[in-house]
């Protein structure tokens, strides 16, 4: 079994992980007087832009479910966690090369630590999402469905997916200089190839099939299931489980294979 020893190594060093995550959050929030606000301001601004553009200019409310604001906010917040993870994990080993060179820790830790730190920021931004949800429940535009229980599942699955992607990106970037640029372009395309500002139902049938290959599609489906009681897109969810585990295993193998050459380079 390939994942177990790695997971055990990380768990054995959870104290170090805790230290690193605290440092990340400390550095992030210590430098700015409104540190926490930046975590939510950025996605809120994006959500506002999409809301204005798509409701007032394109008048395309139908592409999402109602209430559309809540629909976008969930999508943008979750996507932000994923895209920040991909960007930062791709630099994980290079950015901390001095630490990686001088401490004998399981090297996967440098990836997991970023996903955890960004995940905590994501959790801290959830109150905003619930704020919107409560507002729309109060005005009677939506109600809470028992499927909200899928949300924690979505968080765990997105965590595993981000770790898997990070385990591939981090070592590859060290050996392949152009990786961060590719990641940047891929993420920009990924934003539109993921049902963030539109729902899968609004896509043409061909595209719906392609979206099955996007693990974030199923994950977003689970985040939204508690507030948008449409029919659940089960194939998409199953597909994201499968792709997530394949990515995680592939990531572990890639990381293990590239570890020795990477340590020589940094």
């Amino acid at each position: 079994m390939i994942l177990l020893p790695q997971a055990r190594g990380i768990i054995a060093r959870r104290q170090v992980l805790d230290t690193l995550v605290r440092r990340d959050l400390h550095v992030r929030y210590a430098g700015s007087p409104i540190g926490y606000l930046w975590t939510i301001l950025d996605p809120l601004a994006m959500a506002l832009i999409y809301f204005v553009v798509f409701t007032y200019i394109f008048e395309a409310r139908r592409v999402g479910y109602q209430p559309y604001v809540l629909f976008i906010v969930i999508g943008v917040l979750a996507w932000q966690w994923f895209s920040q993870c991909a960007t930062e994990t791709s630099r994980a080993l290079l950015a901390e090369s001095r630490l990686v060179r001088s401490t004998n820790l399981p090297r996967e830790l440098w990836v997991v630590r970023i996903v955890v730190a960004k995940g905590i920021e994501f959790l801290l931004s959830l109150p905003v999402m619930f704020g919107f949800a409560i507002f729309f429940i109060a005005v009677g535009e939506t109600k809470i469905h028992y499927r909200i229980l899928l949300m924690p599942v979505a968080i765990v699955l997105q965590f595993l997916l981000s770790v898997g992607v990070g385990l591939i990106l981090a070592p590859v970037t060290v050996l392949f200089t152009d990786m961060p640029r590719i990641v940047r372009i891929a993420l920009r395309m990924g934003f539109y190839a993921t049902p963030i500002i539109y729902g899968v139902h609004a896509a043409p049938p061909v595209l719906q099939k392609i979206l099955l290959l996007n693990p974030m599609a199923g994950i977003l489906e689970m985040y939204r299931a508690g507030f948008f009681p449409h029919e659940l897109n089960v194939p998409s969810i199953i597909s994201s489980f499968v792709i997530t585990f394949v990515t995680l295993i592939a990531g572990t193998i890639v990381f293990k294979r590239l570890e020795a050459p990477v340590l020589k380079e940094i």
């Binding site: 230290t19 690193l20 440092r23 630490l99 060179r101 001088s102 401490t103 820790l105």
Partner: peptide, 22 residues
Amino acid sequence: ELTGGFLGELTARDNLYLAGGL
């Protein structure tokens, strides 16, 4: 690489706890 675990922007005290943690 003695100072490998130390970060310039944090205080020496924070650094000490951090590097100790590592």
